[in-house]
Design a protein around this nucleic acid. Structure first.
Length: 483
RNA sequence: GGCGACGUACCCAAGUGGUAAGGGAGAGGUCUGCAAAACCUUUAUUCAGCGGUUCGAAUCCGCUCGUCGCCUCCA
């Protein structure tokens, strides 16, 4: 397995710190607002990475934090007129709900900053003792220039940063590059007791404190959105390595952005869509499929057209899946082999290797999906050759196992085709229910029996106008939602 | 200004040294009462442009053009 490491800028062979085990920490969200699709991308990407490690037999410990105390939360509380911890709880719940719908499993550990004050304070104390931190009027700052290697993750030179001159001006700092480890709280703001007076942690320190508590001072994978590379992750490295005197993280993994009209989706530009808004129009599995159909480090252009394409692709999967379950329900006993089964068997045997080859190459889900669709074509080709009997049933079961197995890694394909079409009935706002469709099909069946093709076609067209597509089979007529 | 990405068919998108995956759309065909679905054939001698390295480059190097990101909270 090879993973692209932001630290080295290269794909590197993955070698865990401890054989058979993987420790991964991913920066979660600051819970002060609804999540948008960009948050979903990060969550889904790392969910798949974690599932794939597991699929490969690793014992994974996945930690993803919630930043539940921060200036943005305090501001939001003022706006909404509710206590800050109420804001944090509300949006933490929303996050969990959104992610649950998108098929993102909870992390093994989901630490909160507010529940790790002791660890945070202890860490700052060590930094102070070692001369990496200094206190000024109740604030504590990290002495950036003292840490040798600052900038190694984001490839920045300290003097270039200075030249950028966009570093905030703060008289209390000895150096503009220094960043806050601890911030004194003003009257009325949430505060925790500390050796420097009442205050709250700076943003970066919580991740350093919580990751080392739950995964150790060194661990395998640290992830997050590409925008966290600087300064957040750079600062984490400085704090953690200064504290512990050893390498913090082995592989830094960053996901790319979602763009709208080629521009990064962001709060400040106002060009973002919340997960909730999107799920009103599209099925969560469609969203998930869409996000996994591009490599995790590339930008993804977000649009309804793109989501629709993802829906069509997923429909192709479910159409085949539907065919497979139909065969299990009706196949005849009479044994009939076909020449196509040889290619089919070869495709089945080779599938796992090809899937792994894609995923082993820096979690290339886009390529993996390509492998899945090649397999689907082969399945259909085999079925088109009209085999029957027990060997057909065995092959159908094998194909289903393969597709469902790979679906579990990607967090896709978990439903029955019937459920898929029922859900589409709603999301596509089809003005008919299942009973109405079935009675129309029945009516058409009569017309067809009488060879009244005009009437049969009229009924079919009416259904099509409503968004329902009919498929005549030798023994029955099936319906599906047109995508 | 500094640093870093990216530019593959009509659209989306894999491919980081060995001769262009996959999905959609288009065209033709098989099947069908007709359709739909599925399958088959077809659609990039070519990977922004120009040079260079190499037996060989979309893949490595340089330059040019274009787009974007980070440098400030950000997934």
């Amino acid at each position: 397995m090879r993973i692209y490491n932001t630290l080295t800028g290269k794909k590197e062979p993955f070698e865990p710190l401890e054989p058979g085990k993987v420790g991964m920490y991913v920066c979660g969200v600051t819970v002060y607002d609804h999540c948008h699709i960009g948050h979903a991308r990060s969550a889904i990407v790392f969910d798949v990475i974690r599932k794939y490690f597991r699929y490969c037999g690793y014992d994974v410990t996945y930690v993803r934090n919630f930043t539940d105390i921060d200036d943005k939360i305090i501001n939001r509380a003022k706006q909404e007129g509710i206590p800050w911890n109420e804001v944090a709880r509300k949006y933490t719940d929303e996050f969990r709900k959104d992610m649950g719908l998108l098929g993102v499993e909870p992390a093994d550990v989901e630490p909160l900053a507010t529940e790790h004050m002791q660890e945070i304070i202890d860490m700052i104390k060590v930094l102070e003792e070692k001369g990496y931190a200094y206190a000024v009027n109740g604030d504590v700052y990290f002495l950036t220039r003292k840490f040798d290697g600052y900038g190694k993750l984001s490839k920045r030179d300290l003097d270039d940063l200075m030249a950028g001159a966009r570093v905030e001006v703060n008289e209390a700092k000895r150096d503009p590059l220094d960043f806050a480890l601890w911030k004194a709280s003003k009257e009325g703001e949430p505060a925790w007791e500390s050796p420097w007076g009442p205050g709250r942690p700076g943003w970066h320190i919580e991740c350093s404190a919580m990751s080392s508590k739950h995964l150790g001072q060194s661990f395998d994978i640290h992830g997050g959105g590409a925008d966290l590379t600087f300064p957040h992750h750079e600062n984490e490295i400085a704090q953690s390595e200064a504290t512990h005197g050893k390498r913090f993280v082995r592989y830094w993994v960053h996901n790319g952005f979602i763009t709208v009209d080629k521009e990064k989706m962001s709060k400040s530009l106002g060009n973002f869509f919340t997960i909730k808004e999107i799920l009103e129009r599209f099925d969560p599995e469609v969203v998930r499929f869409f996000l996994l159909s591009t490599h995790y480090r590339s930008p993804i252009e977000f649009s309804d057209e793109q989501l629709k394409e993802a829906e069509v692709s997923l429909d192709r999967y479910y159409t085949t899946s539907w065919r497979l379950s139909g065969i299990l329900a009706t196949a005849s006993k009479k044994e009939r082999s076909t020449p196509e089964e040889k290619v089919f068997d070869g495709m089945c045997s080779g599938f796992d290797d090809r899937f792994r080859a894609a995923m082993d190459d820096d979690f290339n889900t886009a390529q993996a999906i390509g492998v899945i669709f090649e397999f689907i074509r082969e399945v259909n080709r085999y079925l088109d050759s009209k085999p029957s009997g027990e060997s057909l049933l065995e092959r159908v079961r094998r194909a289903k196992d393969i597709l469902e197995g790979v679906g579990r890694v990607l967090g896709l394909f978990a439903r029955t085709p019937e459920d898929w079409y029922r859900v589409l009935l709603n999301s596509r706002k089809v003005p008919m229910d299942e009973a109405g469709i079935l009675s129309a099909i029945d009516e058409r069946k009569q017309a067809r029996a009488n060879k009244d093709w005009d009437r049969a076609d009229r009924i079919r067209n009416e259904l099509l106008d409503a968004g329902i597509l009919l498929e005549d089979r030798p023994d029955r007529t099936d319906w599906k939602v047109k995508v």
